[in-house]
Design a protein around this nucleic acid. Sequence first.
DNA 1: AATTGTGTTGAA
DNA 2: TCAACACAATTG
Length: 386
Amino acid sequence: MEGSSSIDQESTTSNTLSIAPATSSSTTLPATTMTKSPESLCRMGSGTSVIIDAENGVEAESRKLPSSRYKGVVPQPNGRWGAQIYEKHQRVWLGTFNDENEAARAYDVAAQRFRGHDAVTNFKPLRENQESDDVEIAFLKSHSKEEIVDMLRKHTYMYELEQSKKLYGFTKDGMLKRKDGLISMSSFFANNIDKVNNKEREQLFEKAVTPSDVGKLNRLVIPKQHAEKHFPLQNGNTSKGVLLNLEDLNGKVWRFRYSYWNSSQSYVLTKGWSRFVKEKNLKAGDIVSFQRSTSGDKQLYIDFKASNVADTSTVVATNQVQIPQVQMVRLFGVNICKVPTTVSNIVVIDNNNNMTSCNEGKRRMEMELLRFESCRKKQRVIIDAL
DNA sequence: AATTGTGTTGAA
DNA sequence: TCAACACAATTG
């Protein structure tokens, strides 16, 4: 897809158009609104519209949310925007976004992946043989719908796309033409063979999960001793936490928020943990284990064993299929081996053995994406409070 | 408590 | 297919 910034600029300024809180009575904007900057007006438009109750002059919240002018984009109650696409009578949720445009672009990506190049899109569709578009088309083809949706929801699509360009030896300006389909795959293979061979992992620790670890609390308590030994948090990060990326045996990367809860004086995996529990069908008593590769990248791994006190439900869990690490995919007309490449570790253990945000390559990128996100969220809050 | 994203419905 | 709307489920 084409995330050209020109699109951004062009449309963020015209956001107010769609809102027009239509009351037939005089819709004098509240004084507070009048003093707002154009920017904040714009944001307001994206959120709950505020109108004046003509009867008593009291500010009243209109429950009506502003429609988006973009296909596949729906307003969220908090002023953000959701993106969705339909397939087979079912909605596929593509995530929420601060920018209406961003949501629209997410829809476009999904549309191209789900419906092909001639899908109706909000912005310029991908065109074959258009230098840089080819790369993205190939990128879309080489990922499942689920993977693409996942990237969109995590807001990492653009980043993954850029990575794949590097991986395949492409540059933004299409340095490597595809021609006969013989792409310089050497870096691709080198990278991944490396990874496959890097099987030396050191066991860090294991934990038998408690009922509350797999319950509705959506968190895993990391025993303090292990947490402090293997996942030390820097002071600044204790409350906010950091993001940990752990790869499972299938090569799937799980991202968890890891932080310290003052209230319970414990280290916990929070966001992302419930998904893991759900997908792996973890039951109380099962063993989760954490490993780290001994090679330079210090990739973290997570695995689990169902407890042997197998009741019928845990048997299901042991059926977990290990998908082969390497699979064939067809890319640019050639069959190539594909191994999971989502190697993102936002956290790194520094020389002092402390866990900190890494600042190189993909890691930094994602970090910045996240920072950017949270920053913009804050902006919204402030603007809304005006 | 705030936000996400699902359940549902009616219109296109 | 699609978006509007309400609100339950999830997250922080």
